[in-house]
């Protein structure tokens, strides 16, 4: 049984912990809203780009053809690139553990050697511990990563691919399902697999009617790098939104737990105090009787 003084001290400490986690929760909630907004702002462009790409894929030289774009060509896989997107910081529940677990599983499942590009400190630390080769790292992108920063990441991945250092590139990030649910996903980034047009007839119509200036191959050449950049950008923004919402939920749980502990401790404290008063009263009454008796 702790003493009254010890109890009082513990109640104070739990209360201040609750204050801190509550503040963190509020900050994460407002950051999450902005991060989500940023992630949705880029969506119209990404959707349009995807549409254009699918119509173009029908008209331009496909992956099987000789003169197709290198981003479309499948090569024998001798080395794999992996873009691992994680938060820089902790205090966001199981998010980092889940992301790193997925990354570990992915790396172990590859037959070819993996060269990783780490985006975010938590992922870099994990990859180093797991003895995965980290070819490059990007940290401190901030809460709302800007397009020119994510572009640099995408460029690096594309350059490595074009230089033949890796033959396939995957993208691992935290998909934002909803506020309480974020899912680690791994997707292929390069070579690009263009979304299929709605139907073969639609594709045929596109091939026949569309005018391309200067020509399909040249339009493709411009479009594909943009498409890869947008995928990386979208993944980074989505991860940022996931991080904030994971933190918000984790901090809410922490606050709730702290409040619960505080309630229990207060109960124990009151009981102990009552007991002490009763003992003291008994002492006083006993003493008075002894004097008068």
């Amino acid at each position: 049984m702790p003493t009254i003084q010890q109890l009082r001290r513990r109640i104070g400490s739990v209360r201040s912990t609750a204050k801190i986690t509550n503040a963190l929760q509020l900050v994460a909630a407002s950051k999450m809203r902005r991060a989500q907004e940023r992630a949705t702002e880029g969506r119209p462009y990404a959707e349009k780009l995807q549409l254009v790409l699918s119509s173009l894929a029908a008209a331009a030289p496909g992956a099987e053809e000789e003169d197709s774009h290198p981003f479309l060509r499948q090569r024998p896989v001798e080395a794999v690139g992996f873009l691992h997107i994680t938060p820089d910081r902790g205090l966001c529940g199981a998010l980092n553990a889940n992301l790193n677990g997925a990354a570990g599983g992915f790396v172990n499942g590859q037959e070819a050697p993996v060269a990783a590009i780490a985006v975010g400190r938590k992922g870099r630390e994990f990859l180093t511990r797991a003895r995965v080769r980290v070819a490059a790292e990007f940290t401190d992108l901030g809460d709302y990563p800007a397009l020119n920063e994510t572009r640099a990441i995408a460029r690096l991945a594309m350059d490595d691919y074009l230089a033949g250092e890796v033959d396939r590139v995957y993208l691992g990030f935290a998909e934002f399902v909803n506020t309480v649910n974020q899912r680690p996903v791994v997707r292929q980034l390069l070579p690009v697999e263009p979304p299929a047009p709605e139907s073969e007839a639609a594709a045929e119509a596109l091939r026949r009617e569309y005018l391309f200036e200067p020509d399909p191959a040249r339009v493709f050449e411009r479009l594909l790098p943009r498409y890869v950049e947008m995928q990386v950008h979208a993944a980074v923004l989505e991860s940022a939104a996931s991080e904030q919402s994971a933190r918000m939920v984790a901090m809410k749980n922490a606050t709730d737990n702290a409040n619960e502990i505080e309630r229990e401790l207060t109960l124990t404290y009151n009981k102990a105090r009552q007991e002490q008063i009763t003992t003291e009263l008994l002492d006083i009454v006993g003493g008075a009787e002894a004097v008068s008796g």
Partner: peptide, 11 residues
Amino acid sequence: ILPRHAPLMTT
């Protein structure tokens, strides 16, 4: 580009 332009894709 005027109305009723043919489908076009350009850089």
